[in-house]
Design a protein around this nucleic acid. Structure first.
Length: 653
DNA sequence: ATAGGGTTAG
């Protein structure tokens, strides 16, 4: 081996005055000249020392040692070094190695060039990769594919596609890189076009990689017909023995709305791994079938396969959505036992879960335990404070965020603006609103506009609100108009209420809430003729106000209530409690504020006959069925069809 | 050597 090394650094002879001497005579020369011999010996040792350092993953030292030798080491040493740079995502060191090849006069072949391409791509410097690619005298399929995949992964799809179209021939790697690039960057249709093109024109046969990408595309559209077609292909070609293919297939059915089919495939899988389990569990959550999801989750826990951060994040988000803090706490405990990455999104999902459940102290504790909280955690906590009656804490936290050097994004500002709304800080809110664009260089989103209109309308500053609406660069959405309508109701602004309602009738004519609110505004103003007109319009259009339905969960059992509901077995106790409660409230001097009734006029009239609103019934039942001091959480369901439904959950302590 | 499945915040 050492003898071989002797041959490679022929530039060694540069050190010796006799460059032209032959191999054997040089050896003799070396023997005769102690200095030359020492140099040779050192270089030789350094080569093997670099190899040794590479084996030990000591990248820094290896590169430092490399910089001390002027002549190129063997190609395999370069290769090892580059690979190590890739592993460490060490762009700086990688550049040093690259510079060394140039300085030492090493002429890299395609193989080493491809390594450099891969290194630059993985370290995130596509510019350097492109430069290497441009300078390559000779390229192979791998060179092209590495570039295409590099561009496709970061969403530079045009660049990727240009290379793809330009390359002389394509293989499965090229197709997969391109198709998955489209899938991951919201162009699933283009992905499927490409897949069809592959089937048509090229002789490339599908393999498990191309079909999984195509399945992901069908899932993202979603296109069940195409998904089924690919399923057929898979069976025909015999690719149905691969875990990932199965998983993608199950995912496709789930995303295309056939959750039963997804489960069917999931059940048939022999070697389910953490990804297939997690995906199936999340399917149930997305489908709103949380019991099923939680059941499958506990089944997974018993399977012996180790869950990962995706699993935890998925379940915790489901807990957050359902204010299921008891389960969230259990998951937290489990995570602590088996360990989780405090830098990962499982950690921020914890902050989110506790914030959403109203346990802001727990959220803060998790947040403080994070070595470097990410933006999602900051945002969750800020929004959590805003929602849980501590808007000033939310704003303080936001100022801390700015000091920490983390850049807020548009979602952070939704939390900030809603904090201002809750705190009634109108001018401060306006200041933040303007800073979004001016100080942070972000674009105002429809959400920001809805927030700021909500803020101004609640404060009765309708002139400014209208001014902003008229100047905004996009069409106001339904949330904005609904906020405005709500503000008009508080401040009895009939004119603007009409404008808001008309806009809402156009956007969502089928939503009864608009009619009800407008009728209420007219009723408050005593304009009964207008109330009747709104009612008639509702009837004419066939819009039906669904009765408000509320439910509360006591010990995992759901109890439902309609307005004026007397069918519950405990109905008598509930009504006694509520009667007692309003008696005591009146004694304390409480006067009901009719501006803030949550229900429509008809229901209000019912209430005068002691026909209680469903929320009141549910909360009352919760209070009398639980020990004193128990937290009762409420979670508005924001699905399209039932905006007035409340979800209340009693959590065992 | 280059490619595939599940993913947070109002």
């Amino acid at each position: 081996m050492k003898f071989l090394n002797f041959k490679i650094p022929h530039s060694l002879s540069l050190l010796s005055p006799r460059r032209t001497c032959s191999f054997s005579s040089q050896k003799t020369q070396l023997n005769k000249h102690p200095l030359s011999r020492k140099t040779f010996f050192q270089s030789n040792t350094k080569d093997s020392l670099i190899s040794h350092l590479c084996d030990q993953k000591r990248l820094r030292e290896a590169v430092q040692l490399l910089s001390q030798i002027d002549q190129p080491p063997s190609a395999s040493i370069y290769s090892n070094l580059i690979q190590l740079c890739v592993q460490h995502r060490a762009l700086e060191e990688g550049k040093k190695v690259h510079a060394h090849t140039k300085a030492s006069g090493f002429v890299p072949g395609v193989f080493i060039c491809n390594r450099f391409l891969d290194m630059y791509v993985k370290c995130g410097s596509l510019r350097d990769a492109q430069k290497v690619f441009d300078e390559m005298p000779e390229r192979d399929l791998c060179s092209w594919n590495t570039m295409i995949s590099g561009y496709a992964k970061v969403g530079k799809l045009d660049e990727a596609r240009n290379l793809f179209d330009e390359m002389p021939e394509r293989d499965n790697f090229s197709w997969t890189a391109m198709i998955s690039g489209y899938v991951h960057h919201s162009q699933p249709k283009e992905a499927l076009n490409l897949y069809r093109m592959m089937l048509r024109h090229e002789n490339s046969k599908s393999n498990k990689f191309t079909v999984t990408s195509a399945l992901a595309a069908s899932a993202a559209i979603p296109n069940l017909r195409m998904g089924k077609e690919i399923h057929g292909n898979i069976v025909r070609i015999g690719l149905d023995s691969d875990e990932v293919v199965w998983s993608a297939l199950s995912d496709m059915y789930g995303k295309c709305g056939s959750i039963e089919q997804a489960r069917h495939i999931f059940d048939k899988m022999v070697d389910k791994d953490v990804v297939s389990w997690t995906a199936m569990i999340d399917k149930y959550f997305e489908d709103g079938r949380r019991e099923k999801g939680f059941d499958l989750f506990s089944e997974f826990m018993r399977s012996g396969i180790r869950p990962n951060d995706f699993t935890f994040a998925g379940v915790l988000n489901a807990c957050a959505d359902h204010a299921a803090e008891d389960l969230g706490k259990q998951v937290h405990g489990y995570m602590t036992r088996i360990g989780f990455d405090p830098f990962s999104f499982a950690a921020s999902a914890l902050v989110h879960m506790y914030s959403k459940c109203g346990s802001i102290e727990d959220a803060k504790r998790v947040f403080k335990g994070m070595p470097r909280p990410d933006l999602v955690s900051w945002t969750s906590l800020i929004a959590g404070y805003a929602q849980n009656g501590q808007p000033n804490e939310a704003l303080k936290l936001f100022e801390l965020l700015l000091k920490s050097g983390t850049q807020p994004d548009h979602i952070t500002f939704v939390g900030v603006l809603s904090a201002c709304t809750h705190a009634g800080l109108v001018d401060k809110g306006l200041e933040y609103f303007h800073s979004i664009k001016e100080k942070h260089g972000l674009k105002h989103t429809a959400d920001h506009y809805a927030c700021i209109i909500d803020l101004l309308a609640r404060a009765g500053r309708f002139g400014e609100a209208e001014d902003i609406i008229d100047k905004m660069p996009m069409k106001p959405d339904k949330f904005l108009w609904a906020s405005l309508l709500g503000g008009c109701r508080i401040h009895r602004n009939l004119e603007l209420a009409k404008r808001a309602a008309e806009a809402l009738f156009e956007i969502e004519p089928e939503n009864p809430a608009t009619y009800v609110t407008l009728a209420n505004i007219y009723a408050t103003a005593g304009m009964w003729g207008e109330v009747a007109k709104v009612r008639k319009a509702m009837d004419d259009k066939g819009v039906v106000k669904k009765p408000g339905l509320s439910w509360i969960e006591i010990k995992r059992e759901k109890h439902e209530f309609l307005v004026g509901d007397k069918s519950h077995p405990k109905s008598h106790d509930i009504h006694n409690f509520l009667g007692e409660l309003s008696k005591r409230m009146k004694e304390k001097g409480y006067v009901p504020d009719t501006n803030f009734v949550l229900h429509d006029v008809e229901e209000e009239q019912k209430e005068q006959n002691l026909s209680y609103h469903s929320e009141k019934l549910a909360v009352a039942f919760g209070i009398i069925s639980t020990p004193p001091g128990t937290t009762i959480r409420h979670q508005p369901i924001t699905s399209k069809e039932s905006t007035q439904v409340l979800y209340l959950s009693y959590l065992c302590g």
